[in-house]
Design a protein around this nucleic acid. Structure first.
Length: 264
DNA sequence: CTCCAGGGTTTGC
DNA sequence: GCAAACCATGGA
C-alpha cells in the first residue's frame, strides 16, 4: 500500500536513533520495523510517498500511532530558534526526520534494562537472541518475548543471550509483570513523577532507564534520559547546565535531536 | 590486546 | 547525603 507522509520522516535516522532496537535497513534500501509481534517493511518511493507492507487497517490502527504522526515535528524544531540556542538549532537541523516512537511498554522495559553499559549494536544482538530463543514464531520473524516466556525461561538459555549481570533484572521485571505486581497499562494513567517512581521499583531500572521507558513507550515528552552522551553535551556545550529543561513538554524530543547530533 | 558502551546497585564514609 | 567500587559481555 502507498501512504503519503508530509511531516518530518527519515527512516535511517529513526532506525539509528537508539530508541528502537529492532529496526534495520535491508539490502534493497527498504526498512524493516518490528514491534512486539508486528512487522512493517517500508520504503520511500518519492519525496513524500512510501510503500508499506501492511494493510490500510494495520497502518491506521497500529503504525500511524507507532510513528507518532499525530505530532507536528516541524513545529517542535522551531522551538530552538525561539531560545536562540545554537547547539540545539544545529541538532534540530541535523536530526530532522527523527520522531519519538510510541512503542510497547513491556518491550521498552526489557530493552532498556539490557541497554545499560552496552553499545547500541550489542543491545540489538542481545535482543535478537532473546526473540529467537523466547519469542513466538511469526511469518518471517520472531516476536518479542511475552512476560510468561521470560518468567519460565531456563537461566542457561537466558544467559546464552548475552544478558550478563542483567539476567536477574530481566527475571525480576518479567515476574513483576507476569504476576500483575506491575501493570504496565494501568500505570499509563499516572503523572510523570509517579510513573517514574513505579518503573524504578523494578531491579535494574534507575533514573536513566525509567526516563527512556517514559519517553519511548508512554510518550512523556518532558522526560530527558541522561546518559553518557547527554552528560557530554551538558559538560562540553553548556558549561554543566541542563539545556533541555527550558523546553518543557518538548524537552525529551530536543534531547533526542541532540543525542543524534552529538553521536555523529 | 585494550577500551568502553543510551547505568544501577551496593558499599563505605 | 555523597563518591567509589563493582558488575558480565560484545563490539570496535
Amino acid at each position: 500500500m502507498l501512504v503519503n507522509i508530509k511531516d518530518d520522516f527519515d527512516l535511517m535516522k529513526i532506525a539509528e536513533s537508539g530508541q528502537c532496537f529492532r529496526a534495520n535497513r535491508e539490502a534493497d534500501g527498504s526498512f524493516c520495523f518490528l514491534a512486539m509481534d508486528n512487522k512493517c517493511i517500508i520504503r520511500a518511493v518519492s519525496e513524500s510517498e512510501y510503500e508499506v507492507s501492511v494493510s490500510e487497517k494495520q497502518w491506521k490502527e497500529f503504525w500511524e500511532h507507532y510513528f507518532d504522526f499525530g505530532l507536528d515535528y516541524a513545529k517542535v524544531r522551531k522551538l530552538a530558534d525561539g531560545h536562540k540556542d545554537d547547539f540545539m538549532i544545529k541538532s534540530c537541523e541535523d536530526g530532522c526526520g527523527i520522531r519519538i516512537l510510541n512503542q510497547n511498554p513491556w518491550e521498552m522495559l526489557i530493552s532498556f534494562i539490557i541497554s545499560q553499559r552496552k553499545s547500541i549494536p550489542a543491545i540489538k544482538t542481545c535482543i535478537e537472541k532473546l526473540c529467537r530463543s523466547f519469542g513466538k514464531v511469526c511469518e518471517g520473524f520472531y516476536a518479542f518475548p511475552e512476560p510468561e516466556a521470560l518468567v519460565k525461561a531456563d537461566n542457561e538459555v537466558l544467559a546464552d543471550c548475552g544478558l550478563g549481570y542483567r539476567l536477574e533484572y530481566i527475571k525480576d521485571a518479567a515476574a513483576k509483570v507476569f504476576y500483575h505486581e506491575l501493570d504496565l497499562e494501568q500505570i499509563s494513567e499516572l503523572p510523570d513523577e509517579e510513573l517514574g517512581a513505579v518503573l524504578k521499583s523494578v531491579k535494574g531500572v534507575g533514573d536513566k532507564v525509567a526516563n527512556c521507558i517514559m519517553l519511548f513507550a508512554y510518550h512523556r515528552t518532558a522526560s530527558v534520559p541522561v546518559d553518557t552522551w547527554v552528560k557530554k553535551i551538558m559538560e562540553e556545550d553548556y558549561g554543566g547546565e541542563n539545556p533541555f529543561l527550558k523546553y518543557g513538554d518538548a524537552a525529551g524530543i530536543m534531547q533526542q535531536y541532540a543525542f543524534y547530533h552529538k553521536r555523529q
